[in-house]
Design a protein around this nucleic acid. Structure first.
Lengths: 215, 215
DNA sequence: CGAGCTTGTTGACAGAGCGCCAACAGTGAT
DNA sequence: ATCACTGTTGGCGCTCTGTCAACAAGCTCG
């Protein structure tokens, strides 16, 4: 503020380049457009390697507009992570009424379907590509993990008012699920069948032998 | 503070700040000193929130010296992560000769000892505090996970030439172990006993029912 | 014991990225 | 057609990073 007291008259010879792309859009539409570009870029490269200049250029707008809609680069990234992790609610009512084995098998299959569909962007988001440790980012991810953990508990019939310990165990299981998915989708060390078997077997073992010990 | 700047006001006219701290150190000693400061700072805050200026100030040296010894901020961070994840080799020979249950119990206990001892810095490193997604950082972490996974396989008697699938499963288990440790040390949702039970039971289930299916 | 050399160390410079702001220019209402 | 409204732009200042030539501390040699 101090310096630029001079308001007008920037002046004289400054011929502004004829701005063609000054097309006016509905705020929601513009915001959505910028967000979609950001989702793509943050899915390809980690956080520090994506500049707001990149987002603005790919969206065909000025960089200032990105800040106008999202405030901060970090806030933009938070929106991106929310979008990436927003996943169709598990159709719990569609889970078979069979025994624990069938229900575990069904929810694991549903999880693998979701993950494989979004693959890269989902993995980039769940690992907080380049922003893990930030409180806000961690919270958004933690909320997504909580949703997944609750689905697990509900599917295994323990969803009714689980204690904090039980939820912690479910979150740990979700953590293993994401690591296993990475071994499958990123490293190619496992096949989908192997992942499915591992997650189902482990879930059953936890339901039978570990969960009961959680008051 | 540490920097304690005001010198004995030597010469008058000298515009140059009287440099007192130009103390000369052996390269190895200086490097070690800067590295220890960096380990502390990166253990407290995520990557983007630690500037090389902070490291230099806390180490009592000029910022340029940090770059002189470590080249880049990222290279410095790589050294830090290596230090944080370098962990005493598991004394496999000390594992009991008993059945799988005893051996699993022993290695899980050893893992929890190591993690709880380094707690914050270890967790910050294993989650790549703010640098996940970077190829180099990910590789350093992947190597540490590989070491842990091999320890698991060795302890369970499967260490002799495991296939890629088996190693992938072991890495997934290590991933769950880190997530579980976080639930214990960071969120406080689980007690050490609960973590121990969860990891032991899960490991046994995997050894008995999942690993055999990995060709 | 002083001159000179080696090299650890410093401060400054240039480039890049980000947040902010005032002016500009489409768009609909009067 | 004029005017108000607001979406949009381009540039300013700041912080942070990597590089570099100059400085000086400590050792060696005469």
């Amino acid at each position: 503020m101090s310096s630029a007291g001079t308001p007008p008259a920037p002046a004289a010879g400054a011929l502004r380049p004829p701005v063609i792309r000054g097309r006016r859009l509905e705020p929601d539409a513009r915001r959505e457009q910028i967000l979609s570009v950001a989702v793509r870029l943050f899915g390809e490269r980690p956080y520090p390697e994506v500049s707001t200049t990149d987002v603005a250029r790919d969206a065909g707008v000025a960089r200032g507009l990105v800040n106008h809609y999202f405030g901060t680069k970090k806030e933009l990234y938070l929106e991106v992570v929310r979008v990436m992790l927003t996943v169709p609610e598990v159709a719990l009512s569609l889970l078979p009424d069979g025994g624990p084995a069938e229900r575990a098998d069904a929810i694991v299959g549903w999880f693998l379907d979701v993950v494989s569909r979004h693959s890269t962007s989902w993995l980039a988001a769940i690992t907080a590509g380049g922003m893990a440790g930030d409180p806000d980012v961690d919270q958004v991810i933690a909320e997504a993990v909580d949703v997944a953990a609750d689905s697990i508990l509900t599917a295994t019939g323990l969803g009714a008012d689980p204690g904090e310990a039980l939820r912690g165990m479910a979150r740990a299981y979700v953590g293993m699920a994401t690591c296993t998915a990475r071994e499958w989708l990123q490293r190619g060390a496992l096949t989908r069948e192997q992942v499915h078997t591992l997650l189902t077997t482990t879930l059953l073992a936890m339901v039978e032998k570990v969960f009961p010990q959680a008051t």
